[in-house]
């Protein structure tokens, strides 16, 4: 079925305990696409990511991965279907080494994928140089590379990145964008990323959704992304 989307989200409601945040989120990602989700602080982007991976329960609506309903599965079972989640703020395992952090990521596939460690080291050489250093002592940019390398270790078919550029130097942001675009072109890796950094959005996104007050309020094409002023208007108050 070539027209089954990689990810289909329909009428998703969710939030924290009694506090609703998502108010009926609808969007989809096709096979091999890189899609950005943009919006101001506090509109529910991170809540959406956590609800997609299953760290927060959805109160209503559905999530389908390649046609399979996944919103009733626990987070680790969703991950094992090939979803790599990179949380906002990175959340590396601080008292484990860089290498150990990477090895935990193998749980996504449930096995060691031959040659994957070498590939990840190829994308992010710093992770090889610092292999035995404790992850909590890395800089923000290095931790972000580690958090992305960690999910790539499990050979995911799609990744969810929550504000990968936050608090990171521009050259590292560009490097990460280049690697994600390259992986997408070579392997068809699907990418959904939440972002507020215009350069990163324009460097990576093929399409873009705008989120406001717990809903998707606009859908932008690649051509729309070249309109700097319009993009900026969605991100600033």
């Amino acid at each position: 079925m070539p027209d089954t989307p990689l990810l289909q989200v329909t009428g998703l409601n969710g939030g924290y305990g009694g506090k609703p945040v998502l108010q009926g989120v609808d969007f989809h990602v096709n096979e091999g696409e890189i899609v950005a989700i943009i919006g101001r602080n506090g509109v529910g982007k991170s809540t959406l990511m956590k609800t997609l991976i299953g760290l927060l329960p959805n109160q209503r609506g559905t999530v389908h991965l390649r046609g399979q309903q996944i919103d009733n599965l626990s987070a680790h079972r969703r991950a094992r279907l090939g979803i790599g989640y990179v949380p906002q703020g990175r959340d590396v395992f601080p008292r484990m080494t860089v290498l150990e952090n990477l090895l935990v990521g193998q749980s996504i596939s449930g096995r060691k994928i031959d040659g994957m460690l070498e590939q990840v080291h190829g994308h992010f050489p710093i992770l090889q140089e610092r292999a035995s250093q404790r992850a909590g002592t890395l800089s923000g940019g290095q931790q972000q590379q580690l958090a992305i390398g960690r999910v790539l270790m499990g050979g995911p078919s799609m990744v969810l990145l929550d504000e990968p550029s936050e608090g990171i130097q521009p050259n590292i942001v560009q490097g990460i964008a280049r690697i994600m675009v390259d992986l997408n072109a070579r392997t068809g890796l699907g990418v959904v990323f939440v972002e507020q950094n215009l350069d990163m959005i324009r460097a990576m996104a093929q399409r873009c959704y705008v989120m406001d007050k717990g809903r998707i309020t606009a859908s932008l094409t690649r051509a729309d992304l070249d309109d700097q002023d319009r993009l900026r208007s969605y991100l600033s108050v």
């Binding site: 626990s74 395992f93 150990e100």
Partner: peptide
């Protein structure tokens, strides 16, 4: 390895496929 990951950041271990 997985148990140390689980004590340090349980929700991330779970989201990486670890049956916490």
């Amino acid at each position: 390895l997985l148990s140390r990951a689980t004590i340090q950041v349980p929700h991330v271990a779970e989201a990486l496929g670890v049956n916490t």
